[in-house]
Nucleic acid binder design. Structure first.
Lengths: 200, 200, 200, 200
DNA sequence: GATGAATGAGCTTTCATTCAT
DNA sequence: GATGAATGAAAGCTCATTCAT
């Protein structure tokens, strides 16, 4: 039995509210009671729309994946190094807009949850996007072939998430977008093909 | 009244046991009861040697700081880019030896704890070490001066910790030392002074 | 969001039960578990209706204050010495009806609690009532002016509470109402104005 | 097997220290550890000289009884009303000298302890002393015969202990000796034989 | 005599989850 | 659909007491 569109819509509304609540309260010490009080719903209602608390984390992750698929990927141009910069800058921007608490949760959440491995599938999405960028970059000779696509893609993701985690740990005390840009300008230099320096 | 050497020694033994336990169980959902059961001591004994649960985290952090101060820093040579590689490789090695759970804890622990800011001081130690390396690197013209010491140091630390977190999230499924080395070979290229390419 | 009348009513019922339980068990060594077992509720339910254990003490005190404000004060007549007798007798009667354990708790509770000074405000209420009686008594020349209002009021309260404590310590082995009456007949003689003996 | 005089003496020394500690720390939240740390003895030593924690309370009570038997009673004169005043004043003075914490403990300790009724016997001592005073007072026609000896003795003790409790609850914020004196001057008026007012 | 390491029952409090209304 | 009362396992931590050294 499929769920009614009405229920689905209400759930979406709740998700928006919950995201705001998480940002104000943080996730670590956030209780279902907190969420419900802030969202002005009853505990029963929460459990009517969601199965368990960890659904909230899933929601958070789905948000960033959707954003990249729907809003970031379409803006990619021909310069793949530039696309990497766009990719990581957008990620930083998303963190900035989501706030410290959600960023912390996104960047420290375990890959495999006790009950469901909701992350393994989600996480792949960003990997696939960045792997596409790197593959094309190598084909166009914009990116070194000394390292494999997987290696470079991992470097990008790890660095990017590293900043998200660090920024959240530091309570958003610096401009994450600028920091990430600076870092990946350096990084991009490192993955340029060597002859690039000569011909460019 | 100073603490007896015997008590101090026994505490050290317990710390070793606890570290092993944390690695087997993880920290997040680790309870005092778990620790005590695994270490075959009573709850009372745990509290005889430690003040509170978070002492365990402190212990974990102290370990890595001591290692860098005592064992890594003295091995630094003249080539500061090489020293950066040594630094991050040793960090990766420490993660590898400490195991997944402790690495996760070290890399996701909040910067500021509610009760004591035991991390802010600890965290500075690694910063200071790497900042020294970068400073000397710039002086010797081994590292670009286009970025500030603080910026580059942050890049190193964030990238390094990013790998620790990623590796732990992936349950240690890849060779963290190799991954980190590859990454920082790329990174080091990025922070070489430009003329380096010509004169070198 | 105001609390529902239903919750409020259920809390009142629980309070009644808890008062009985306190009387059977005493307070000093009373645990939440005891209360819940005896009241046939779960621990969670207790904390659903109350914030913390010490709420129970507050409840006990509120009871006696309400009783004096609502039921005793309105019965005061013109003879202020008689009113003192009414006051202390009613207090004794309240102890008698509340039982030994609650009386013990009421009479030995510290004036200032660590977390909230719920007593300082409560305690004032009885003081104010008795000070009013003494003031009027002095104005009507029914009570000596050789001592201040505050002094005499303190004497009444201290004596009265002294009996409550003593009676509770003796496990209610004597008739507290009679003992208090006898005492304050003596006391009242002591605070009559001297000329009273001549003119009366 | 009688205990050695040496052990007995050492115990006496410890008692003195413990009394001081109780006064500084209070009793309610005083742990054996606290006592031992402050008295600079080990926990084992405490249990070598005492059986259990509540021995400390016994010690406190024994102190006041000894004081009255040894130091107060011998000073009694012919005027029994004056002796009552001496009695209660000395009690107040003892409280003053013992400090707030010990006074609180003395005045709120239950009559019957869970393990031993160490108080019932102790408590009788002060009763016996004051009953002697009242008896002689009635014989000399210094005290009314309208009330029984037991009644009047109880009134004195209850009032006196009431002040001790009140003073401790108020953290020693007023002069207990003066307050007690004032109270019992009033009280003494109340227990004078009636004709006394005529003939005196 | 003196020590203090070791014990573990027991404390208050939290909170995700269920389910009758 | 919506509610929130009820649950109870489990958490961190305390502390009087024992006993081997």
């Amino acid at each position: 039995m499929r769920e009614s569109p009405k229920k689905s819509q209400k759930r979406q509304e709740l998700i928006q509210t919950i995201i705001e609540v998480v940002n104000r309260f943080g996730y670590e010490n956030l209780t279902i009671r907190d969420i419900c009080r802030e969202a002005s719903i009853s505990i029963g209602t929460f459990y009517h729309y969601f199965d368990e608390k960890s659904d909230v984390v899933r929601i958070l992750f789905k948000g960033i994946d959707d954003y990249f698929e729907d809003s970031v990927q379409p803006t990619f141009g021909n310069d793949e190094l530039e696309n990497i910069l766009t990719f990581v800058s957008e990620y930083a921007l998303y963190c900035h807009k989501s706030g410290v608490a959600i960023t912390r949760e996104i960047s420290t959440a375990p890959l495999i949850n006790t009950s469901r491995n909701y992350l393994s599938s989600q996480r792949r999405k960003l990997s696939i996007i960045i792997e596409g960028v790197v593959t094309r970059g190598q084909q166009k000779n914009q990116i070194t072939r000394e390292l494999s696509v997987a290696q470079i893609a991992q470097m990008v993701l790890v660095g990017m998430r590293g900043y998200a985690a660090d920024w959240a740990k530091n309570e958003g005390s610096y401009d994450i977008v600028e920091a990430v840009k600076s870092h990946f300008i350096v990084f991009n230099k490192g993955i340029k093909p060597l002859d690039d320096y000569i011909t460019d």
